[in-house]
Design a protein around this nucleic acid. Structure first.
Lengths: 396, 396
DNA sequence: TTGTACGCGTTATCAA
DNA sequence: TTGATAACGCGTACAA
């Protein structure tokens, strides 16, 4: 059975349900004007708050119902909704009264159909379990809220096929714009979005082609300041903890680390790469085990982690293993999520302006959606080191 | 200017944008059947992936465009989409080809309008900054995904007026069902949802009235096992850290704590309430300060925190202040978020089945949406203590 | 097997 | 100031 069949099956149930919840509702005497349309809708009832209605056949009341109840035409109701000034006070009040009585609520689908686009944005995030992206999402939501738009928040969980599925659905929904932190910025299903002309902003990744907006911090620079800070503190052997390399952010933060390491004339083999399979707390713990397993003369005295989750996992392992942080092992994270400061040994981290990334991305996508002179923009933020106890002491 | 004006202004921009991105796209010779409708759409082009089209006046291609391009009627296209079996292979392929060429994507608004309901669920969460709710949301999203539904994730941030605004929008969107962890379960705007007949499930709160489904753990029991665990470990003075009392979860966890404290014959004044203004890490820190400020003979040797965020804040303050955890201060949290286990002193916590709460809630809301025999259900889960290092030792 | 015609709820245009 | 009517895109009777 195809979709049509299922839809046809849904509708009666919907009616059935309405019929059920009506049972027990307070019903008072029928009221309303003597408008002839009224006889087609004989079941209007009035209750305290307009929710005790059973308009027509069980569907939600429409402008048509309101018009009938108020004894005016459909166009007038529309005017009350969209150009209140143009309708006389008396009729407007009558219509408003009818809307309240019926519990009328505008149907967004119909408005969308008419308008050609929905009143929603969407953010497809890379990892819902990482508070960093939640904070970005919060920034977006605030901006969306201010523009009176709803926000679809989707989570790809790092899986390309799930991301693609989400995007398909969002395009079907005709969302006004899509913000995404992509699994792979070069994936075709990502490029297709911009090519369709849907306002589109890449978050936490810069566009290489420049054919859409993007918002990110300079990850290479972030890697640089993290490692420079560790060099400052006198560390001569440093671990870079992070992976997989398919993640651009990881690559660039590592690159920044290597650059500055080299510039300070340190031997490349003293910047030790501990690859991880994901940017998670548990991968951080496992990296900690590998780190502890190194022969002591090869063992780093500090670690720069590609994000805070890894750093927290590493920190946990270190403390459990009896290492003193920062004396035995200094740790720098990346993102500066709230939990970094809240760790038992507060974590030094490279701060990204999380909410502002989101706000800016939303601003750009809205500009693309509304401004005919929109120019694609690559908004780059400068990361900042927030030094805390986990790198507290200067060595030697 | 009212909304109508703005919409009217949007549409031309939309066209303008499409015109722009088309520039530079590869254009090949016009192709297609000689169907007469074709002349109304003279600008069809074919490219590699169907995205280089400029159908009609800049709007996304509709079934009508597909029909014209394939040289069939509109109904046939619809049949291809909804009852592929009923259409001959040859025409079906021709239609599918046309859809691919044009980059046709179904318009959800139109489907919704027709179907009377959207293909989306919604979850309004209480605190987006708390990973607990993110995990619940993830459970919901997985279930929604399996049912091929989109999920609106909204965040009230504990503010009733924001929650109400979200709910208004969701009702306008005609979502299939609403899941919510409400600021106040008894608020009228919450009750209105269920009264409207919208499938509705309360998450992390039980329904008192029974006129809708709900999913939660037994918070009183959770409070009991937390404090019983501390009593087991030999603690005679315990703090309950949590607030505000307007949050039902806080009240009930506290109640459970008091019950078991009394049952063990402990004097009521030795269960010390440290109220907080929110369930956040920073409030946990501030509670830590107050705790440290107590005279030593009144100072608790253990703390039960109303959630893990408070516990992490308290832990952080304790470590910073030089207290040993658990020797000087044992700590129990609630929720067992991932960061609890990842804290530098892994946190003992009362575990809620976070994802399962979400999955169950989604299951219930879908049942209400589709099953005519749906009965409201109060799904109660049993919390479980997860003992970790933060309460590690038995005292005395 | 395919095509025609109508309705979903809203908004905008135009006429009264 | 108000009313009638035609779209928007899709799904589906019903007719051919």
């Amino acid at each position: 059975m195809g979709w049509g069949g299922r839809i046809g099956w849904f509708v009666p149930l919907w009616r059935w349900r309405l019929k059920c919840f009506i049972r027990g509702a307070m019903l008072t005497s029928t009221e309303g004007s003597a408008h002839p349309r009224m006889r087609f809708n004989p079941s209007f009832q009035r209750g305290g708050n307009g929710l005790t209605q059973q308009p027509r056949n069980g569907r939600a009341p429409s402008v048509k119902d309101v018009a009938a109840a108020a004894g005016v035409s459909l166009g007038t109701v529309s005017n009350v909704l969209n150009r209140p000034a143009v309708v006389s006070t008396a009729t407007r009040e009558r219509v408003e009264r009818a809307m309240a009585d019926l519990g009328f609520i505008r149907n967004e689908s119909a408005r969308q159909l008419r308008a050609g686009t929905s009143r929603a944005l969407a953010y497809v995030m890379l990892d819902g379990g990482n508070p960093f992206f939640q904070d970005v999402a919060e920034g977006i939501e605030n901006a969306a809220d201010a523009a009176d738009l709803s926000l679809f928040v989707c989570n790809s969980g790092g899986r390309a096929e799930r991301e693609s599925k989400h995007l398909d659905r969002l395009v079907q929904q005709r969302v006004q714009g899509i913000l995404i932190t992509p699994v792979d910025p070069d994936a075709s299903h990502v490029a297709d979005i911009a090519r369709r002309g849907i306002p589109f902003v890449m978050v936490d990744r810069l566009s290489s082609t420049g054919d859409h907006c993007s918002v990110a911090v300079d990850d290479v620079l972030g890697g640089r300041i993290a490692v420079e800070h560790l060099i400052d503190r006198g560390h001569d052997r440093v671990a870079f903890v992070g992976g997989p390399e398919s993640i651009g952010q990881v690559r660039e933060r590592y690159q920044g680390a290597r650059e500055v390491w080299e510039e300070f004339g340190k031997p490349a083999e003293d910047l030790i790469h501990l690859p991880t399979e994901a940017l998670t707390v548990s991968e951080g713990r496992s990296a900690g085990e590998r780190l502890a397993g190194l022969p002591s003369r090869r063992r780093p005295t500090a670690a720069f982690c590609a994000n805070d989750l890894l750093a927290l996992g590493l920190l946990q392992h270190a403390v459990t293993a009896g290492l003193r942080v920062p004396d035995d092992l200094a740790i720098v994270g990346f993102d500066d999520i709230d939990f970094a400061a809240a760790a038992a040994v507060p974590l030094t981290s490279v701060r990204q302006p999380r909410q502002e990334l989101g706000r800016t991305a939303a601003r750009l996508v809205l500009d693309e959606a509304t401004n005919p002179d929109h120019q694609h923009e690559q908004a780059t933020f400068v990361p900042a080191l927030v030094a805390r106890a986990s790198t507290g002491t200067v060595r030697r």
